[in-house]
Design a protein around this nucleic acid. Structure first.
Length: 689
RNA sequence: GCCACCUUAGCUCAGUGGUAGAGCGGAGCUUUCGUAAAGCUCAGGUCACGGGUUCAAAUCCCGUAGGUGGCUCCA
C-alpha cells in the first residue's frame, strides 16, 4: 500500500506497487508526456522505477524554471544522449570500445578506445549526428535490466572489454551486489551498455543535441595506461535551448582574454621570445600598473615594507628551501658559471653526469627563481629581530619562472614566467590568526573593488599518502588548523581539498572560472611552519631566548598575468575608467572645432588622465564607432555649439545614446575624480540625477 | 610531455594541384560633417618553417615550431 507524497504535500495511495510513470499519468496526461525521470526520496531515478513503499516523489520534466532548465532533466537527457552517441559511433566504427560516458555541467562526453585503429575526427561528426538522429527518431525505450554481480561479471568477461569489466569491478568494490545494463530498445536485440543509470524513458525525449569536440584522455587518468579518444557533446530538451547555448559559447569566445588581448593590444606572446612568456604592451602595462598602485596603497596602510630581489639565486639556496632538486621538472634547468662550464667541458662531462653532480651538490649553479620566498627569508635573516618588531611584512612584485609542460601553456592564465604580488609575513605564533585575517581581507578588498563576486574558496590540505611535502606532520596539523579557522571567518563557503597544499604548507585559495569554464587559482594565502625551520630563522622573545617565527606567504592577485587574464574576461575588455588604457577620446565634429578640442585634450592630460584626440577627418559616427571598438570609457564630442557654450557632449561606453552636455571644467574635474576614486564616483552617474 | 585539429596581408577570414583574394586597419586625395564606419586611389604576401612527391604545391606526403581543445602536471 504505497503512499506517495508529492512535492506540493498532497498524498496518493495505491493498493499495489506502481511506477513513477503511472503516478505521473494519474496526475495528468501533460505531465506524463513531459516527464523524463523521477526523484524518489530525493534520489534521481528512472521513470519506470517501481514504487513499493511509502516515498516522497517528484516528477522531473525539462520545463524551464527561473535560472534555466531543470538541472536533473538535463542530467538525464545528457546521460542518455551519451548512450545514443556511443551507439551511433559503434555503428559507424565497429572497432570502437566504450570506456566511460558521464554527463557534465554543460554536456557530456564518452571516452572511447580505438585501440591502434584510426580514431574518429571532427569530419565524422556529421555522420555521427545523422546516426544519432535516426536513433532518436526511432523513439526506442531505455530498458534497464539487472544481473547479480557474479553473473554480470561472466557476461562482461565473455564480451571481452577490459574497460567495462574494470568499471564493473569498481562498482562491486564500492558495494554493488548487482550490475545493471541499459538497452536502447529490447535487451538482447538492441544496443546496450553497462550503466547504473538513470535515463530518460525513450530516445525520443532527447530534444536537441550536438557533437562538439574531440580530445584525448588516459584510461583512469593514468598516463601509463591506454590513450582514449574523448568525444564531447551536449544536449538540451529543445532546439531553442541548444541554439541559445551555442550563441552563448560564441559570445564567451568574444570575451576570451586571448581574443581581447589582441584586439585591444593588451599583451603579446612572441614565438621568438618563447612559449608562455608574456610581453606587456603599453596598454596592458597601464592596467597592470594601476592594479599595482592600488594594491601598493593598501599595503602601505597595512604596514608592509617593499623589497626588491634578483631573478636568480644559488642552487644551495633552493637546496635549503627544498625547491631543488625535488621539483626539478617544474623548473628551468640550472644556470652554470663560465669557468665551471669550461672546466666541465674539458673533463668531457656528459649532460647526465652534470645533472647528477648538480643534484648531489658537487657543482654549484644558479636557478631562475621558482618562488620569491627564499630571497625574502634571507632578507629577514640578514638582521636580528626582536619580538617587539614582529610581524615583519616584506612585499615585492616578484617575477618567478616555472617550467610548465608545453601542452599546458596558454594565454596569460598558464605561463612560464609571471609576477606575483608576493609578500612574506614573519610573525610570532600568537600573531598568526590576526595576520591571516589581514591577508584574507586584502583579497576580499580586491575582489570587491573589481566586482569579482564569482569565486570559490578552497582550503588546500596535504595528501596524507603523498611524500612530496616537507616538514614535521605536527607543524602541518597546526598550520592546517590555522587555515581552517581563518577560512571560517571569511563568511563564504569553502571546501577542504586534500592534495592541494603547497609543498611547504597548507593554503587558502581563491579560485575563479574563465569564459570557457576552466578554474584558475588567483589569490592565495599560505601558512608555513616549515621553511622557517629549514632556514633556522629566529627572533628574540620577551624571555631573551631565540624563538622560531611562523611564515605566511600571500599573493592576493596570485600572479599579475593570470589575474589580468581573468580580469579582461570579467570586464569583457571594457575596463572601468581607472584601469582603462585609454580613458577618454576627444573628438571634434570637424576641423572647425579643432582648437577647442585641443584645449580640452590638453586640460585632461594636465589632470593626469589618459586622453587622446581624434583629429582625423572621419565623420563623428565613424570616430565613435572606432572608440567603441577599443572600448574607450568616454567619448568627449565637441562641435561649434559646445565651443560656444564651453561645454562637452559626453558619451559613455556601453550606453547607446549620448549622455548630454556638461561644462568644460566640470567634465575635466569629474573624470579626474572618477579616476582617483577608482570609480567610487562616476561622470556617467552624474547624468542619471 | 601525450592525443586530435589548426597556421594564407597588421587583424578577421575566403581560396580542394594550374599566375594570391576580400573586409577592417595603414598611406594619400576629396569631403568639414552633431553621436556605433562618407567616397575614391594606393601600398601591403617566400601562403609558419624545412624537406619530399609532381610538368606544376597555399592545396598532397614527412619533419619542426607555434597555436587551440582536452589529458596528465601545477611548490
Amino acid at each position: 500500500m504505497p503512499v506517495i507524497t508529492l512535492p506540493d504535500g498532497s498524498k496518493r495511495t495505491y493498493d499495489k506497487p506502481v511506477t513513477a510513470a503511472q503516478v505521473a499519468a494519474d496526475i495528468g496526461a501533460g505531465l506524463a508526456k513531459a516527464a523524463v525521470g523521477t526523484k524518489v526520496d530525493g534520489e534521481l531515478r528512472d521513470l519506470s522505477t517501481s514504487l513499493e513503499k511509502d516515498c516522497a516523489l517528484a516528477i522531473v520534466t525539462p520545463k524551464k524554471r527561473e535560472g534555466g532548465a531543470d538541472a536533473d532533466a538535463l542530467f538525464l537527457i545528457r546521460h542518455s544522449t551519451a548512450h545514443v552517441m556511443a551507439e551511433a559511433i559503434q555503428r559507424l566504427f565497429p572497432q570502437a570500445k566504450l570506456v566511460y560516458g558521464p554527463p557534465l555541467e554543460t554536456g557530456f562526453y564518452y571516452d572511447i578506445s580505438f585501440e591502434g585503429g584510426k580514431a574518429i575526427s571532427a569530419d565524422d561528426f556529421a555522420a555521427i549526428e545523422a546516426e544519432m538522429a535516426k536513433i532518436v527518431a526511432e523513439n526506442r525505450p531505455f530498458t534497464r535490466y539487472e544481473m547479480p554481480a557474479a553473473k554480470g561479471m561472466d557476461k562482461l568477461k565473455s564480451e571481452g572489454s577490459k574497460f567495462k569489466l574494470d568499471n564493473a569491478e569498481r562498482a562491486c568494490e564500492a558495494g554493488s551486489t548487482a550490475l545493471s545494463w541499459y538497452a536502447t530498445g529490447e535487451p538482447g536485440k538492441n544496443w546496450e551498455d553497462l550503466c547504473r543509470g538513470p535515463h530518460v524513458p525513450t530516445t525520443g525525449k532527447i530534444g536537441a543535441f550536438k557533437v562538439m569536440s574531440l580530445a584525448s584522455s588516459y584510461w583512469k587518468g593514468d598516463e601509463t595506461l591506454d590513450r582514449l579518444t574523448r568525444v564531447y557533446g551536449t544536449a538540451f530538451a529543445t532546439k531553442d535551448e541548444l541554439a541559445a547555448h551555442l550563441i552563448q559559447l560564441d559570445e564567451a569566445k568574444k570575451r576570451d582574454h586571448r581574443v581581447l588581448g589582441k584586439q585591444l593590444r593588451l599583451f603579446h606572446i612572441d614565438e621568438m621570445v618563447g612559449q608562455g612568456l608574456i610581453l606587456w604592451t603599453p596598454n596592458g602595462s597601464i592596467v597592470r600598473q594601476e592594479l599595482q598602485n592600488f594594491i601598493s596603497d593598501e599595503l602601505r596602510k597595512q604596514g608592509y615594507t617593499q623589497v626588491f630581489t634578483p631573478h636568480i639565486g644559488k642552487l644551495d639556496l633552493y637546496r635549503t628551501s627544498g625547491h631543488f632538486p625535488y621539483y626539478r621538472e617544474s623548473q628551468y634547468p640550472p644556470v652554470i658559471e663560465h669557468e665551471q662550464m669550461a672546466a666541465l667541458a674539458k673533463e668531457g662531462c656528459s649532460c647526465g653526469e652534470l645533472a647528477n653532480r648538480l643534484e648531489k651538490g658537487e657543482i654549484d649553479g644558479y636557478l631562475l627563481k621558482p618562488m620569491n620566498c627564499p630571497h625574502h627569508i634571507r632578507i629577514f635573516a640578514s638582521s636580528p629581530h626582536s619580538y617587539r618588531d614582529m610581524p615583519v611584512r616584506l612585499c615585492e612584485f616578484g617575477t618567478v619562472y616555472r617550467w610548465e609542460q608545453s601542452g599546458e601553456i596558454g594565454g596569460m592564465t598558464r605561463v612560464r614566467g609571471f609576477t606575483q604580488d608576493d609578500a612574506h609575513l614573519f610573525c610570532r605564533e600568537d600573531q598568526v590568526a590576526d595576520e591571516l585575517l589581514g591577508c584574507l581581507s586584502l583579497v576580499k578588498l580586491i575582489f570587491g573593488t573589481l566586482g569579482m563576486n564569482e569565486y570559490r574558496v578552497r582550503v588546500g590540505l596535504r595528501d596524507p599518502d603523498s611524500a612530496k611535502y616537507v616538514g614535521d606532520p605536527k607543524n602541518w596539523d597546526k598550520a592546517e588548523e590555522a587555515c581552517r579557522v581563518a577560512a571560517k571567518t571569511l563568511g563564504v563557503p569553502f571546501s577542504e581539498e586534500p592534495g592541494e597544499a603547497a609543498f611547504y604548507g597548507p593554503k587558502i585559495d581563491f579560485v575563479v572560472k574563465d569564459v570557457i569554464g576552466r578554474s584558475w587559482q588567483l589569490g592565495t594565502v599560505q601558512v608555513d611552519y616549515n621553511l622557517p625551520e629549514r632556514f633556522d630563522l629566529s627572533y628574540i622573545g620577551a624571555d631573551n631566548q631565540p624563538h622560531r617565527p611562523v611564515m605566511i606567504h600571500r599573493a592576493p592577485f596570485g600572479s599579475m598575468e593570470r589575474f589580468i587574464g581573468c580580469l579582461i574576461e570579467h570586464f569583457a575588455g571594457a575596463f572601468p575608467l581607472w584601469l582603462a588604457p585609454e580613458q577618454v577620446r576627444v573628438m571634434p565634429i570637424s576641423e572647425k572645432s579643432a582648437d577647442y578640442a585641443r584645449e580640452l585634450h590638453a586640460a585632461l592630460v594636465a589632470k593626469g588622465l589618459r586622453a587622446t584626440l581624434d583629429e582625423s577627418n572621419d565623420r563623428i559616427q565613424g570616430k565613435i564607432k572606432q572608440a567603441a571598438d577599443m572600448k574607450v570609457p568616454y567619448c568627449a564630442v565637441v562641435g561649434p555649439r559646445d565651443a560656444e557654450g564651453r561645454k562637452v557632449s559626453v558619451r559613455a561606453f556601453g550606453i547607446e545614446a549620448n549622455l548630454g552636455e556638461m561644462g568644460f571644467d566640470a567634465f575635466v574635474e569629474g573624470l579626474a575624480e572618477e579616476h582617483h576614486s577608482r570609480g567610487q564616483s562616476t561622470v556617467k552617474a552624474s547624468f542619471a540625477k
